[in-house]
């Protein structure tokens, strides 16, 4: 058995807040292999960003408690000293964010923002780093990179800014790129361009990518593996084919039914997942999804409110639900499939 490039085990992230302890991530495990893309999907507040900020060690330790293991290329990150994390960030692990306007510094030229990352991690000279910045801008498809390198982010369009962001993230050839909703702020045609760009760059460099999104359509196009998150936990995991083709968890069914872009026929009404996401301070006991789930009765009396269901089986296509495999197949085939 090979050791995965990134392995997250039983990750728990708790925030101390005035209202109580927020259990943003609770017992999450997943792997990412080199050269592949893992899509993480889930509603707003399901802990997608928190998980990945934890991988980078970007949470403020003053009010954040992190436990579990995050092993990147054999190195344990949750206990790594701050300096080691600083050397890793932007170098071996890079991140791009949702809103490229607010995520780039308005006070520095794009060339400076790219080259300072490069200089920080390689010790290159000013001139070399500037050359590298121009090269990166060219690689991400910015026209006339030589003349644009000294421009400021506000002088670029939204899609171009996200390209700059990607250039900055990839300047040190990271082994892992975390893209947190990289296309949500962009319009549809630009979205497709950015996703193509990521794919293309991945083919060139073999970077592993974690792609966070609300949009299962994006996952279908860009990822090989999927992790569906609900209330800080994984509820389903598998390949894109498995999870989108034969989904097993009621929450995944709900997500798929509420997703306009995957649907084949226009006249079937969209079915949003009923109810609202649970409080992360007082997480419902048992399966956190049970207050919104229509299939509790079929799973068996009191099962869903008792113990918390584990993701099973441990490898391959797994889901955390008490319905029997036969039930899941049956419900999906009879009630869900027609809606998609």
């Amino acid at each position: 058995m090979t050791i995965p490039f990134l392995s997250v085990r039983d990750l728990t992230v708790d925030f101390d807040t005035e209202d109580g302890v927020v259990h943003a991530v609770d017992g999450l495990s997943f792997d990412v292999e080199k050269g592949t893309t893992l899509g993480i999907v889930g509603e707003s507040g399901s802990g997608k960003s928190v998980t990945n900020l934890a991988v980078l060690g970007l949470h403020d330790p003053a009010y954040t408690k992190i436990s579990g293991e995050i092993v990147l290329d054999g190195r344990e990150l949750t206990t790594a000293p701050r300096r080691e994390l600083e050397r890793l960030r932007g170098n071996k692990v890079a991140m791009i964010f949702q809103d490229p306007l607010t995520s780039l510094s308005p006070y520095h030229s794009v060339g400076r923002q790219i080259s300072e990352t490069y200089r920080r991690h390689t010790g290159a000279s000013r001139g070399e780093a500037r050359g590298r910045a121009v090269e990166m801008l060219r690689r991400v498809g910015i026209p006339h990179p030589v003349s644009r390198v000294d421009d400021y982010p506000h002088q670029f369009s939204g899609g171009m800014r996200q390209r700059v962001m990607i250039a900055m993230a990839l300047v040190c050839d990271p082994d892992l790129l975390i893209a947190d909703e990289p296309t949500t702020a962009l319009d549809v045609t630009v979205q497709a361009q950015i996703l193509d760009l990521l794919k293309e760059l991945q083919e060139q460099t073999g970077t592993a990518i974690i792609l966070i999104t609300h949009d299962l359509g994006v996952v279908a196009n860009a990822a090989q593996e999927v992790l569906v998150m609900y209330a800080g936990r994984a509820v389903e995991r598998g390949t894109v084919r498995e999870v989108l083709g034969t989904p097993r968890h009621p929450y995944t069914w709900g997500l798929l039914s509420s997703m306009p872009r995957l649907r084949s026929s226009v006249d079937v009404p969209l079915v949003p997942v009923r109810g609202t996401p649970p409080s992360l301070i007082h997480v419902p006991p048992g399966c956190p999804f049970h207050p919104r789930c229509d299939y509790q009765a079929q799973a068996g009396p009191d099962l869903c409110v008792g113990d918390r269901p584990e993701l099973s089986p441990h490898r391959g296509h797994g889901d955390a639900c008490y319905l029997t495999p036969a039930h899941k197949r049956e419900i999906f085939a009879d009630q869900i499939k027609e809606r998609l």
Partner: peptide, 26 residues
């Protein structure tokens, strides 16, 4: 708490630099 400061940290800038060259600048 601005996004661009988080980006500076995400790209490995040491905390002193983040504080003085990014946050203070704003």
């Amino acid at each position: 708490s601005e996004d661009y400061v988080r980006t500076a940290r995400a790209k490995g800038m040491p905390s002193r630099t983040v504080f003085l060259r990014f946050a203070w600048r704003g």
